[in-house]
Simulated assay, not measured.
Amino acid sequence: MANLSKRMPIKRLPMLPAERALKVIAGRWKAVILYHLFDGPRRLSALKAMISGITQKVLIQQLREMEEHGLVSREIFAEVPSRVEYSATSLGLSLEPILLALCQWGQHHADELNEMDRLADCIIRPRPTRETHASHN
């Protein structure tokens, strides 16, 4: 695991683990951004094109917050013009099953309240593990 203490200082997070987790993933776009990074590194322009309705300012803000919390890493390539790619860290990737579970619970909640017709489809989907996927190729 990467040593996160060398990163910029993290704002004080809640002491209760569940509250801490919710604080780190809170934000309208964080789950969607992470979902797109689960597949691999992306440039800012590619992320913006994949997420309709997000402004570049908000996208950058959400990426910075996730970078501060160790969920996303940013790599700057020494090219002309320079290229920047964002990737989910191993800590960020560990959220995939949690985000899927939250999506499924949200569907269950809407179903229980007879509001399925008001619900959008989940963007987070179960995927075969990389090992399973590799063994089928």
Results as ranks from 00 to 15, higher is better:
1 M>V: 01
1 M>Q: 03
3 N>L: 12
6 K>G: 07
8 M>Q: 08
8 M>T: 09
9 P>L: 08
13 L>G: 06
19 E>P: 02
20 R>E: 05
21 A>I: 03
21 A>R: 12
25 I>Y: 02
25 I>G: 03
27 G>F: 13
30 K>S: 08
34 L>W: 05
34 L>K: 02
38 F>R: 10
38 F>T: 05
40 G>V: 09
40 G>K: 03
41 P>C: 11
41 P>E: 13
43 R>G: 11
44 L>Q: 13
45 S>E: 13
45 S>C: 08
46 A>V: 14
47 L>A: 12
48 K>Q: 14
53 G>L: 12
55 T>F: 11
57 K>Y: 13
58 V>P: 00
59 L>C: 02
59 L>P: 01
61 Q>E: 10
63 L>G: 09
64 R>E: 15
65 E>V: 04
66 M>K: 01
70 G>V: 03
70 G>Q: 07
71 L>T: 08
72 V>K: 04
73 S>V: 04
75 E>V: 09
76 I>K: 15
78 A>L: 13
80 V>C: 10
81 P>A: 11
83 R>Y: 08
83 R>E: 11
85 E>W: 01
86 Y>L: 10
95 L>G: 02
95 L>N: 00
97 P>F: 12
97 P>C: 12
100 L>Y: 03
100 L>R: 02
101 A>K: 12
103 C>T: 00
104 Q>T: 06
104 Q>K: 15
105 W>C: 11
105 W>V: 04
105 W>H: 12
106 G>T: 01
111 D>S: 13
112 E>I: 07
114 N>E: 14
115 E>K: 15
118 R>D: 12
120 A>C: 01
122 C>E: 00
123 I>V: 15
125 R>W: 02
126 P>C: 00
127 R>H: 05
131 E>G: 03
132 T>W: 13
136 H>K: 07
